[in-house]
């Protein structure tokens, strides 16, 4: 399909484990790029550190693989200096919400015109499966051997609160919806944040009784609740199951944005 046009085939094989969800997210993002008709020489992929952040290294454009947590700050420099570029940031839950949390909220506040795709696998995958700010309470990781005791961040709600013009959340199961959401984000001036809940079979699934990749994806699917359904339950005064998370488009608005192509 799109591989020959956008992949650095000379970089294969890639580092991702069998069953990793990151490839799905990269594919959906590149499908959205194709849909947008972006030119290779006007498109820059930026990332920080972690499994998610290796993605730009496999894509045949100019790309900036930066330091842990700082991708959005680097991307802000790129986009502000060259508003005519299309800038896409790949990041993960550790990179974005832990070490990069401050840059995340400020990039949303500035509403810099870029697309941020977060592969949220609820774990530090590259370093071997330590608990992150999105590890669900009770989940087992190498640093939460008795179950995570901290509350988790809701990244999409954080982006909404901080001011991003477009915010959506899907999972690696929802490939069509995800591709549409990334494209919608690219079309919206300002910062577009797309959180993708995705599976890490190697470092999350096998510690949490999700032994197969299909079991992990099914777990994500069955716990995802459309935002419209959640709103209806709330309107009707009915309980929202606590172990679900919302998926869908959380916001699309027109706050003033920076770095928009003139």
């Amino acid at each position: 399909m799109i591989a020959p046009d956008w992949f650095r085939e000379d970089r294969l094989p890639h580092i991702y484990c069998t069953g990793c969800g990151n490839g799905t997210v990269i594919n959906c993002t590149l499908a959205a790029v194709e849909e947008m008709g972006w030119k290779r020489d006007e498109t820059v992929f930026v990332s920080g550190i972690g499994c998610s952040s290796r993605a730009p290294g496999y894509i045949l454009t100019d790309s900036l693989h930066t330091t842990h947590g700082r991708a959005l700050a680097f991307a802000t420099g790129v986009k502000m200096a060259r508003p005519d570029f299309n800038v896409v940031v790949f990041t993960g839950d550790g990179d974005l919400a832990a070490i990069g949390g401050n840059h995340f909220i400020h990039a949303c506040r500035r509403n810099v015109d870029m697309t941020v795709v977060c592969m949220n696998n609820h774990i530090y995958g590259m370093t071997g499966g330590q608990g992150s700010p999105t590890t669900p309470p009770g989940a087992i990781s190498t640093t939460t051997p008795y179950g995570a005791s901290e509350p988790a961040f809701d990244l999409a709600e954080l982006a909404v609160a901080a001011g991003a013009n477009y915010v959506a959340r899907w999972t690696s199961y929802h490939v069509k919806e995800l591709t549409k959401a990334v494209a919608a984000g690219m079309q919206t001036p300002g910062l577009a944040f797309i959180e993708v809940r995705t599976q890490c079979p190697t470092n999350y699934g096998r510690h949490n009784k999700l032994r197969s990749v299909p079991a992990m994806i099914e777990h994500l699917r069955s716990h995802a609740m459309l935002v419209e359904k959640r709103d209806r339950l709330v309107r009707e005064g009915r309980p929202v199951p606590e172990d679900t998370f919302t998926v869908g488009e959380l916001v699309r608005r027109n706050r003033p944005a920076m770095g928009v192509r003139r």
Binding site: V46, D62, L64, T66, T67, G69, R70, A73, F74, A75, T76, G77, V78, K79, M80, A81, R82, F85, N102, H103, H106
Partner: peptide, 17 residues
């Protein structure tokens, strides 16, 4: 920028343009 980590990061990003 929001801090000096971000300041030098933005400078490097801009320099690459």
């Amino acid at each position: 920028m929001e801090d000096e980590l971000a300041s030098i990061a933005a400078v490097i990003g801009a320099a690459w343009t």
